[in-house]
Design a protein around this nucleic acid. Structure first.
Lengths: 204, 204
DNA sequence: GTCTATAAATAGATAGAC
DNA sequence: GTCTATCTATTTATAGAC
């Protein structure tokens, strides 16, 4: 019995390998970061051979693109949840997306660096492009409602807001905050930065 | 003659290999990023064998620590230059360090992610620790002069300021700004973010 | 101080068996 | 659809010649 349990690893992974590869990729990214990501490691996590992934994705970048697309979709869902929980204050509805971003990247390992990775745009993946654009539109709308400003101002604010959140989470992953800050504390810092940015942006 | 010129590569690199390795590491980091860094590549750039670096550094991490230390020193110099050029307005003297950071990382390839890399603190490298602390103290002082606020507020502002600058430069390197923005334009964006943060921070 | 040669990992990817 | 086996390339690091 325990023999069978052991043999389940290293043996067939029936039918659902493609989504399982994507899910295992998130786990590896969360633990090892983009630098530590490899197709072989993902396969090992699932107990399949290192050749198996290539039945579902032609190469590493196509797997990454699938992960990036799902990350964008999940991130949009997280933004939606955070905004729904934030109440009715337009400023706060914008601000909470910074916290949601930090928590998402902290737990799932894939953020804008993966979603908008330089090497992936040559794949011309429409699903990925659309998911990325949807994400940006969502933030742009929240910024507009929070500031009442023109498109240019909102675009600048969204950029600053995201860049700060991304900076916090990457420097956190890199060990910059040598104290033992939790991901929730980093999320609070990112939201505080977003509030400061909003205070420094004209409203009306 | 051209034969000799060719043979200069692949042959002895007299006497100055240690600093040359550090300098070549910056070049590789600037072109390929932290992920694309390898001791072997650095050696190839200098036309020495892949074994040669190990006469000067016991392992990869010790080379990285030397690079990180020099990056911290150079970055402090760049901050000094930028501040000196900024004139007398305390706010602007603080803000320009964001631009200096972006330009430095854009051209040299090594920023806070390298200087405060997680794996390097176990080396207990005093020179690196001191250089990093000096960098932070410099920014803390500029923030104090710009805001006149307490230590806590300044620390928060410096964090937000750095995190935004770092976020801009990493997302720029990652291809997030698919437009053909130059590093100077990204530096301007980082300074604009810093001004917005300063506006959103109480002064007095 | 640098070289050649080499070892042991690990990576991405392919061919062909089952 | 997954496996075993294999190829090629690359990495970190060491041993020993010069």
């Amino acid at each position: 019995m325990s023999e069978k349990a052991q043999n389940q690893r290293g043996r067939y992974h029936h039918g659902e390998l493609r989504p399982a590869l994507i899910e295992a990729s998130f786990g590896l990214l969360a633990e090892s970061g983009l630098a530590g990501f490899s197709v072989a490691q993902v396969a090992r996590r699932l107990g399949v051979s290192t050749a198996a992934p290539y039945r579902h994705f032609p190469d590493r970048d196509h797997l990454m693109a699938a992960v990036a697309t799902q990350a964008a979709v999940e991130l949009a869902e997280e933004f939606g949840r955070a905004v729904a929980d934030a109440g009715s204050d337009p400023a706060e509805r914008f601000v909470v997306t910074a916290g949601a971003y930090v928590r998402f990247v902290g737990t799932r390992g894939a953020g804008f660096d993966v979603i908008f990775a330089a090497g992936l745009e040559r794949l011309q993946n429409a699903a990925l492009t659309d998911a990325g654009r949807h994400l940006m539109d969502l933030l742009w709308e929240l910024a507009e409602q929070a500031t009442g400003q023109d498109q240019e101002t909102c675009l600048t604010l969204v950029g600053q807001h995201l860049v700060a959140a991304h900076g916090y989470v990457t420097l956190y992953a890199g060990g910059f905050f040598h104290r033992q800050e939790t991901i929730d504390e980093i999320a609070d810092l990112a939201m505080a930065a977003s509030r400061t940015l909003l205070r420094g942006t004209p409203t009306g």
